[in-house]
Design a binder for these strands. Structure first.
Lengths: 200, 200
DNA sequence: GTCTATAACGCGATAGAC
DNA sequence: GTCTATCGCGTTATAGAC
């Protein structure tokens, strides 16, 4: 197998540093230029090296962008998972919502990178199943609930995205208050008996 | 002024037909190729003419894409506005949610086009204020409510987007039931006294 | 191990024939 | 009014010098 596939622990310190540097440059470029506006030349320029040098450390431009995407995504899920695990099951949904909104508010460039990746060509068909972990957290908070937790999780995820997007366009927008409002709606929904509110 | 800026009523019938044809081709290409994957050559190919001919009818590629975007957006707001105006004020939010989800479900290519346009470079800073019409509908449904209707409108919009996106990835997903669940959550929130649920 | 030079291609847009 | 031919630029990726 090629050296590109070795475990990270086997990489030299200088190569790990280079990769980190390239990933950070890529995150910034994608954040305020979009995926399409991010070229090898600009990545190389920002990192202070040449295009060919970039392609020495990564096999292709797509690989650089993919690595950058994984980097920011890992940071997000690590923080949210820690917050949820530190909370009681009943307040798991609130911890999920508040920590995710907080993380995205604190790292706006990561946010742009993540949303860009979701729309992009490369990761077109992987987006599914994002709702599943949240549905499990909801289930743990309310084991006996009958209503559709998948749809509830989808609505919550969409609400979080929209709140964060609004803050991206209007930095004065109070995401903490918005998070509280979303938490209140979710807890009210979880307290209802679910389903009987929408007889068909 | 150039002929490009004449009113649509002054265009010849053949030119109007050509523009329609080009817009339809562009909607399809953007829908399943993304903005970046849509080139003048492909638009021309799908319409059966040449690149130069496309640029005769529109001043630039961006103008074609912008026209296509406006086309699908106008269709959406026309249907939603009609549904909301046909409903009692109290059921305005429900009409908004159901008609928008229904329209996007019925026109998946329009959906992709709209989401693509929101992310794209061209329309970067125009996205704001989307929540405002919905906030007015919410206000009309519940004039005395104290809580933050802007945030509620943002959450609803995000929920709608997420439901539609889920259906895009999983055609078996029941958007009508999801719409019902979202409507129930919103009506419950509007019935509460708003704000007292999240004392700070 | 890293860089220079360049290949090979697709892009949007234009000039000018017809 | 529509087409052919082409320009000039930016792109990813590679070959080979050092």
């Amino acid at each position: 197998m090629s050296r590109r596939e070795r475990a990270e622990s086997e990489l030299t310190l200088t190569e790990r540093a280079r990769r980190r540097q390239l990933i950070e440059a890529t995150v910034e470029l994608v954040a305020d230029g979009g995926y399409a506006g991010t070229s090898l030349a600009r990545i190389a320029e920002r990192a202070g090296i040449t295009k060919a040098a970039v392609l020495y450390h990564f096999p292709s431009k797509d690989a650089v962008v993919r690595a950058a995407h994984e980097h920011v995504l890992n940071a997000l899920v690590a923080e949210v998972a820690a917050a949820v695990e530190a909370a009681e099951p009943a307040s798991g949904p609130a911890a999920y919502i508040r920590s995710m909104i907080g993380h995205l508010r604190d790292h706006p460039r990561h946010t742009r990178m993540i949303t860009e990746a979701m729309t992009s060509e490369t990761a077109k068909h992987e987006s599914a199943e994002r709702w599943r972990p949240l549905a499990q957290i909801l289930e743990a908070a309310r084991p006996n609930r009958r209503a559709d937790l998948r749809t509830l999780a989808i609505i919550i995820s969409g609400g979080i995205d929209a709140i964060v997007a609004e803050q991206l366009g209007d930095p004065a927008y109070d995401t903490a208050a918005a998070a509280d409002q979303l938490v209140a709606m979710v807890e009210a929904e979880l307290s209802s008996d679910g389903g009987s509110a929408t007889p068909r």
